[in-house]
Design a protein around this nucleic acid. Sequence first.
DNA 1: AGCATTACCCGCACGC
DNA 2: TGCGTGCGGGTAATGC
Length: 283
Amino acid sequence: MPELPEVETIRQVLIGKRAGEPSLLGQTIIGSSLFWSRTLATPSPDVFKSFVKGRTIVDVNRRGKFLIFILDEGYLIVHLRMSGDLRKASNLGSPRTVEPVLPHDRAYLHFATGWGLAFNDPRKFGRLWLTPDPQQVLKHLGIEPTDPQLTPEEFHQMLHTARRQLKPLLLDQSFLAGIGNIYSDEALFQARLHPRRTSDTLSETDSAELLIAIRHVLELGIQHNGASIDWVYRGGAFQNYFQVYQQTGNPCPNCGTPIERIVISQRGTHICPHCQTLQPEKN
DNA sequence: AGCATTACCCGCACGC
DNA sequence: TGCGTGCGGGTAATGC
Protein backbone atom coordinates (compact mmCIF):
# COMPACT_ATOMS: atom_id res chain seq x y z
CA MET A 1 0.00 0.00 0.00
CA PRO A 2 2.80 2.30 0.10
CA GLU A 3 3.92 5.38 -1.58
CA LEU A 4 5.51 8.20 0.32
CA PRO A 5 2.24 9.63 1.75
CA GLU A 6 0.94 6.25 2.89
CA VAL A 7 4.25 5.31 4.48
CA GLU A 8 4.47 8.69 6.17
CA THR A 9 0.93 8.25 7.49
CA ILE A 10 1.82 4.85 8.92
CA ARG A 11 4.94 6.32 10.50
CA GLN A 12 2.93 9.02 12.21
CA VAL A 13 0.44 6.51 13.52
CA LEU A 14 3.23 4.27 14.84
CA ILE A 15 4.92 7.01 16.81
CA GLY A 16 1.65 8.18 18.31
CA LYS A 17 1.50 11.46 16.45
CA ARG A 18 -2.22 10.87 15.91
CA ALA A 19 -4.65 11.49 18.74
CA GLY A 20 -5.42 8.47 20.87
CA GLU A 21 -2.70 6.36 19.30
CA PRO A 22 -0.19 4.57 21.53
CA SER A 23 3.44 5.14 20.58
CA LEU A 24 6.14 2.67 19.69
CA LEU A 25 8.77 5.02 21.02
CA GLY A 26 10.41 3.66 24.14
CA GLN A 27 8.93 0.19 23.70
CA THR A 28 11.24 -2.66 24.57
CA ILE A 29 11.10 -5.73 22.37
CA ILE A 30 10.95 -8.94 24.38
CA GLY A 31 10.87 -11.24 21.39
CA SER A 32 9.66 -11.82 17.85
CA SER A 33 7.66 -14.24 15.73
CA LEU A 34 8.29 -15.04 12.10
CA PHE A 35 5.70 -16.86 10.02
CA TRP A 36 7.15 -16.41 6.52
CA SER A 37 10.92 -16.49 6.60
CA ARG A 38 11.44 -14.77 3.24
CA THR A 39 9.88 -11.63 4.73
CA LEU A 40 13.26 -11.26 6.41
CA ALA A 41 15.78 -9.98 3.88
CA THR A 42 18.63 -10.05 6.38
CA PRO A 43 19.98 -11.49 8.68
CA SER A 44 19.02 -15.13 9.22
CA PRO A 45 15.95 -15.76 11.40
CA ASP A 46 18.09 -17.02 14.26
CA VAL A 47 20.35 -13.99 14.29
CA PHE A 48 17.34 -11.70 13.90
CA LYS A 49 15.47 -13.21 16.82
CA SER A 50 18.43 -13.14 19.19
CA PHE A 51 19.51 -9.64 18.25
CA VAL A 52 16.10 -7.99 18.31
CA LYS A 53 15.31 -9.36 21.75
CA GLY A 54 15.91 -6.76 24.43
CA ARG A 55 16.18 -3.85 21.97
CA THR A 56 14.33 -0.61 22.57
CA ILE A 57 12.68 1.45 19.82
CA VAL A 58 14.20 4.92 19.97
CA ASP A 59 12.57 6.50 16.91
CA VAL A 60 10.82 5.75 13.63
CA ASN A 61 11.96 7.62 10.52
CA ARG A 62 11.07 7.42 6.85
CA ARG A 63 13.24 7.52 3.75
CA GLY A 64 11.38 7.26 0.45
CA LYS A 65 9.03 4.33 0.89
CA PHE A 66 11.15 2.76 3.64
CA LEU A 67 10.38 2.90 7.35
CA ILE A 68 13.45 2.99 9.59
CA PHE A 69 13.11 1.83 13.19
CA ILE A 70 16.02 3.23 15.13
CA LEU A 71 16.82 0.81 17.93
CA ASP A 72 19.10 1.39 20.89
CA GLU A 73 21.45 -0.78 18.88
CA GLY A 74 21.03 -1.28 15.15
CA TYR A 75 18.22 -0.46 12.74
CA LEU A 76 15.12 -2.32 11.65
CA ILE A 77 14.15 -1.28 8.13
CA VAL A 78 10.76 -2.11 6.57
CA HIS A 79 9.53 -1.91 2.99
CA LEU A 80 5.83 -2.64 2.51
CA ARG A 81 6.03 -3.09 -1.25
CA MET A 82 2.58 -3.71 -2.78
CA SER A 83 0.44 -5.06 0.03
CA GLY A 84 2.34 -4.78 3.30
CA ASP A 85 0.86 -3.20 6.42
CA LEU A 86 1.95 -2.59 9.99
CA ARG A 87 -0.50 -2.62 12.86
CA LYS A 88 -0.27 -2.24 16.59
CA ALA A 89 -2.11 -4.99 18.45
CA SER A 90 -2.55 -6.25 21.98
CA ASN A 91 -3.52 -9.81 21.02
CA LEU A 92 -0.34 -11.08 19.40
CA GLY A 93 0.45 -13.49 22.20
CA SER A 94 3.95 -14.30 23.40
CA PRO A 95 7.07 -14.85 21.32
CA ARG A 96 6.44 -18.57 21.67
CA THR A 97 3.14 -18.30 19.83
CA VAL A 98 3.38 -19.95 16.47
CA GLU A 99 -0.05 -19.28 15.00
CA PRO A 100 -0.62 -15.94 13.26
CA VAL A 101 -3.57 -13.96 14.60
CA LEU A 102 -4.75 -12.82 11.17
CA PRO A 103 -4.34 -14.35 7.72
CA HIS A 104 -1.18 -13.07 5.99
CA ASP A 105 0.53 -11.98 9.21
CA ARG A 106 4.22 -12.52 8.44
CA ALA A 107 6.07 -11.30 11.54
CA TYR A 108 5.50 -9.88 15.02
CA LEU A 109 7.51 -7.82 17.45
CA HIS A 110 6.37 -8.42 21.03
CA PHE A 111 6.76 -5.58 23.53
CA ALA A 112 7.30 -5.67 27.28
CA THR A 113 4.04 -3.76 27.70
CA GLY A 114 2.09 -6.76 26.40
CA TRP A 115 1.18 -5.46 22.99
CA GLY A 116 3.19 -5.57 19.81
CA LEU A 117 3.66 -4.75 16.16
CA ALA A 118 2.36 -6.99 13.37
CA PHE A 119 3.62 -7.05 9.80
CA ASN A 120 0.85 -8.24 7.48
CA ASP A 121 1.47 -8.78 3.78
CA PRO A 122 -0.85 -10.86 1.56
CA ARG A 123 1.41 -10.75 -1.50
CA LYS A 124 4.61 -11.49 0.42
CA PHE A 125 6.60 -8.84 -1.48
CA GLY A 126 7.40 -6.77 1.61
CA ARG A 127 10.76 -7.10 3.36
CA LEU A 128 12.44 -6.49 6.71
CA TRP A 129 16.12 -5.76 7.25
CA LEU A 130 17.96 -5.70 10.56
CA THR A 131 21.26 -3.94 10.03
CA PRO A 132 23.92 -1.96 11.87
CA ASP A 133 24.12 0.44 8.91
CA PRO A 134 20.97 1.77 7.21
CA GLN A 135 23.00 2.91 4.22
CA GLN A 136 23.47 -0.73 3.29
CA VAL A 137 19.79 -0.78 2.43
CA LEU A 138 19.10 2.84 1.48
CA LYS A 139 22.17 3.93 -0.43
CA HIS A 140 20.55 3.61 -3.85
CA LEU A 141 17.80 6.13 -3.04
CA GLY A 142 17.65 9.53 -4.67
CA ILE A 143 16.78 12.80 -2.97
CA GLU A 144 13.53 13.26 -1.04
CA PRO A 145 11.07 15.21 -3.20
CA THR A 146 10.45 17.60 -0.30
CA ASP A 147 14.13 18.25 0.42
CA PRO A 148 14.69 22.04 0.32
CA GLN A 149 18.02 21.37 -1.36
CA LEU A 150 16.07 20.19 -4.39
CA THR A 151 15.68 23.53 -6.15
CA PRO A 152 13.86 24.02 -9.47
CA GLU A 153 17.22 24.64 -11.10
CA GLU A 154 18.67 21.44 -9.67
CA PHE A 155 15.59 19.46 -10.69
CA HIS A 156 15.75 20.84 -14.22
CA GLN A 157 19.38 19.79 -14.40
CA MET A 158 18.51 16.29 -13.16
CA LEU A 159 15.78 15.91 -15.79
CA HIS A 160 18.11 16.93 -18.58
CA THR A 161 20.88 14.64 -17.43
CA ALA A 162 18.55 11.65 -17.19
CA ARG A 163 17.09 11.82 -20.72
CA ARG A 164 14.37 9.31 -19.93
CA GLN A 165 10.60 9.04 -20.22
CA LEU A 166 9.03 11.00 -17.39
CA LYS A 167 6.87 8.27 -15.90
CA PRO A 168 9.54 5.57 -15.54
CA LEU A 169 11.90 8.28 -14.32
CA LEU A 170 9.54 9.38 -11.56
CA LEU A 171 9.06 5.75 -10.55
CA ASP A 172 12.83 5.26 -10.34
CA GLN A 173 13.66 5.46 -6.64
CA SER A 174 17.26 6.42 -7.39
CA PHE A 175 15.98 9.55 -9.12
CA LEU A 176 13.53 10.71 -6.48
CA ALA A 177 12.63 8.63 -3.43
CA GLY A 178 9.02 7.88 -2.59
CA ILE A 179 6.93 8.42 -5.72
CA GLY A 180 4.85 5.49 -6.98
CA ASN A 181 2.22 4.81 -9.58
CA ILE A 182 -0.57 6.95 -8.14
CA TYR A 183 1.38 10.08 -7.36
CA SER A 184 3.36 10.01 -10.61
CA ASP A 185 0.14 9.94 -12.64
CA GLU A 186 -1.39 12.69 -10.53
CA ALA A 187 1.73 14.87 -10.66
CA LEU A 188 2.17 14.50 -14.42
CA PHE A 189 -1.46 15.40 -14.96
CA GLN A 190 -1.23 18.45 -12.75
CA ALA A 191 1.87 19.57 -14.66
CA ARG A 192 0.11 18.79 -17.96
CA LEU A 193 3.00 16.60 -19.07
CA HIS A 194 2.73 13.37 -21.05
CA PRO A 195 4.26 10.41 -19.16
CA ARG A 196 6.22 9.37 -22.26
CA ARG A 197 7.69 12.82 -22.73
CA THR A 198 11.48 12.65 -22.64
CA SER A 199 12.86 14.40 -19.58
CA ASP A 200 15.42 16.53 -21.40
CA THR A 201 12.77 18.20 -23.57
CA LEU A 202 11.30 20.04 -20.61
CA SER A 203 11.70 23.80 -20.45
CA GLU A 204 12.76 25.40 -17.19
CA THR A 205 9.13 26.33 -16.65
CA ASP A 206 8.01 22.74 -17.31
CA SER A 207 10.54 21.43 -14.79
CA ALA A 208 9.57 23.94 -12.16
CA GLU A 209 5.89 23.15 -12.60
CA LEU A 210 6.53 19.42 -12.40
CA LEU A 211 8.40 19.86 -9.13
CA ILE A 212 5.57 21.96 -7.75
CA ALA A 213 3.05 19.33 -8.88
CA ILE A 214 5.02 16.48 -7.28
CA ARG A 215 5.25 18.29 -3.97
CA HIS A 216 1.61 19.32 -4.14
CA VAL A 217 0.18 15.84 -4.71
CA LEU A 218 2.44 14.30 -2.06
CA GLU A 219 1.41 16.93 0.46
CA LEU A 220 -2.25 16.46 -0.43
CA GLY A 221 -1.83 12.72 -0.02
CA ILE A 222 -0.34 13.12 3.44
CA GLN A 223 -3.10 15.57 4.38
CA HIS A 224 -5.66 12.89 3.59
CA ASN A 225 -3.75 10.07 5.30
CA GLY A 226 -2.81 8.52 1.99
CA ALA A 227 -4.98 6.67 -0.51
CA SER A 228 -7.01 3.54 0.16
CA ILE A 229 -7.59 1.48 -2.96
CA ASP A 230 -8.33 -2.16 -3.68
CA TRP A 231 -8.72 -4.21 -0.52
CA VAL A 232 -5.51 -3.10 1.21
CA TYR A 233 -4.84 -0.19 3.52
CA ARG A 234 -7.64 1.49 5.36
CA GLY A 235 -8.10 4.94 6.68
CA GLY A 236 -6.83 7.03 3.80
CA ALA A 237 -9.09 9.35 1.82
CA PHE A 238 -6.86 10.63 -0.97
CA GLN A 239 -8.58 8.27 -3.41
CA ASN A 240 -11.50 10.70 -3.29
CA TYR A 241 -9.28 13.38 -4.80
CA PHE A 242 -7.79 11.45 -7.72
CA GLN A 243 -7.83 13.54 -10.89
CA VAL A 244 -6.76 10.80 -13.30
CA TYR A 245 -5.65 7.71 -11.39
CA GLN A 246 -8.32 5.01 -11.76
CA GLN A 247 -10.50 7.54 -13.58
CA THR A 248 -10.48 5.80 -16.96
CA GLY A 249 -13.44 7.03 -19.00
CA ASN A 250 -14.32 9.78 -16.58
CA PRO A 251 -14.15 13.37 -17.81
CA CYS A 252 -10.89 15.23 -17.32
CA PRO A 253 -11.41 17.75 -14.50
CA ASN A 254 -9.72 20.33 -16.68
CA CYS A 255 -11.23 19.89 -20.17
CA GLY A 256 -13.82 17.10 -19.99
CA THR A 257 -12.04 14.72 -22.37
CA PRO A 258 -12.37 11.11 -21.16
CA ILE A 259 -9.35 9.94 -19.19
CA GLU A 260 -7.40 7.17 -20.92
CA ARG A 261 -5.49 4.27 -19.49
CA ILE A 262 -2.26 3.28 -21.22
CA VAL A 263 0.56 0.97 -20.16
CA ILE A 264 4.08 2.25 -19.59
CA SER A 265 6.77 0.06 -18.03
CA GLN A 266 4.18 -2.60 -17.26
CA ARG A 267 2.31 -0.09 -15.13
CA GLY A 268 -1.19 1.17 -15.71
CA THR A 269 -0.93 4.86 -16.51
CA HIS A 270 -3.74 7.41 -16.58
CA ILE A 271 -3.72 10.52 -18.70
CA CYS A 272 -5.91 13.15 -20.27
CA PRO A 273 -5.03 12.81 -23.96
CA HIS A 274 -5.97 16.44 -24.54
CA CYS A 275 -4.17 18.12 -21.64
CA GLN A 276 -1.06 15.94 -21.66
CA THR A 277 0.48 16.13 -25.10
CA LEU A 278 3.47 14.06 -26.10
CA GLN A 279 5.18 16.69 -28.19
CA PRO A 280 6.27 19.95 -26.66
CA GLU A 281 3.90 22.75 -27.58
CA LYS A 282 5.09 24.88 -30.47
CA ASN A 283 5.15 28.58 -29.86
C1' DA B 1 30.70 0.34 -23.35
C1' DG B 2 27.01 2.22 -21.30
C1' DC B 3 22.59 3.63 -21.03
C1' DA B 4 17.62 3.23 -21.57
C1' DT B 5 13.86 0.24 -22.33
C1' DT B 6 11.36 -4.01 -22.07
C1' DA B 7 10.16 -8.62 -20.21
C1' DC B 8 9.53 -11.41 -16.53
C1' DC B 9 8.96 -12.64 -11.98
C1' DC B 10 7.41 -12.78 -7.34
C1' DG B 11 1.84 -14.48 -3.82
C1' DC B 12 -2.49 -13.23 -3.40
C1' DA B 13 -7.18 -11.07 -3.78
C1' DC B 14 -10.62 -9.09 -6.32
C1' DG B 15 -13.80 -7.80 -10.14
C1' DC B 16 -15.77 -8.87 -14.39
C1' DT C 1 -13.80 -20.78 -14.12
C1' DG C 2 -10.69 -17.90 -16.18
C1' DC C 3 -8.36 -13.76 -16.97
C1' DG C 4 -6.74 -9.21 -16.30
C1' DT C 5 -5.11 -6.13 -12.90
C1' DG C 6 -2.35 -4.30 -9.03
C1' DC C 7 -0.01 1.85 -3.81
C1' DG C 8 6.93 -2.27 -6.05
C1' DG C 9 11.17 -3.34 -7.55
C1' DG C 10 15.07 -6.70 -8.68
C1' DT C 11 17.22 -9.10 -12.45
C1' DA C 12 17.96 -10.42 -17.09
C1' DA C 13 17.47 -9.67 -21.83
C1' DT C 14 17.18 -6.56 -25.59
C1' DG C 15 17.73 -2.25 -28.04
C1' DC C 16 20.14 2.07 -29.32
